[in-house]
Amino acid sequence: GGAPSLAPSYWLADQRTATGELRTLRLEDGTLLSLNTHTAVDIDYAGAQRVIVLHQGEISVETGHQDPRPLLVRTEDGRLRPLGTRFLVRREAGGTRLEVLQASVAAMPHNSGDEQVLREGQQVLMNANGLGEVGTVPAGADAWT
Rank of each mutant, 00 (worst) to 15 (best):
G64V: 01
N129A: 13
L25Q: 10
E21T: 04
P82S: 02
N36D: 12
G121L: 11
M108I: 12
R26H: 11
L101F: 09
D77K: 03
P138W: 12
S5D: 05
G121I: 08
A106L: 11
P70G: 00
L22G: 03
Q49P: 01
Q102G: 02
L54K: 02
S9A: 13
R91N: 07
P68T: 14
S104K: 09
G47S: 09
A139L: 13
D44P: 07
V51E: 05
T85I: 07
G20L: 11
H55Q: 10
T37L: 12
A141T: 04
R16E: 12
R90T: 05
I59K: 02
T145K: 10
A7L: 09
T17F: 08
W11M: 07
F87M: 05
I43D: 00
L32G: 07
D29R: 07
N129F: 13
E58H: 00
G94R: 04
E92K: 13
D114L: 07
L101T: 12
L88E: 00
L12F: 03
W144L: 12
V61N: 03
A13I: 01
V41R: 04
L33H: 02
G84R: 12
L22E: 08
E21Q: 14
L6P: 06
L54R: 01
Y45S: 01
T39I: 06
H38E: 15
A139T: 14
P68M: 13
R74S: 03
T39E: 02
A143Y: 02
L101S: 10
L22Q: 11
A103Q: 13
Q116D: 09
L33V: 09
S5K: 05
E28L: 10
D77T: 05
I59L: 07
A141N: 06
T24L: 04
L35P: 02
L118I: 09
Y10M: 02
R97M: 10
V124E: 06
A103K: 15
Q49T: 12
N111S: 14
N36K: 14
L83P: 00
P82C: 03
T136S: 15
G30Y: 03
D42V: 01
A143I: 05
G113V: 15
G113A: 15
G113R: 14
L101N: 11
F87V: 04
P138A: 09
P4Q: 08
Q49S: 10
L6Y: 13
W144T: 13
T75Q: 03
E28R: 08
G94M: 05
D67Y: 00
Q49H: 11
T19N: 02
V105K: 01
A106M: 12
A107R: 05
L83A: 03
L72E: 06
P68A: 15
L125K: 06
T37D: 12
W11Q: 06
A141V: 06
N36L: 12
L32N: 10
H38P: 14
N127I: 07
R69D: 07
E62K: 08
M108E: 15
H110F: 10
N129L: 13
V73H: 01
V61K: 04
R119I: 09
V61E: 00
R69Q: 13
A107W: 01
I59H: 02
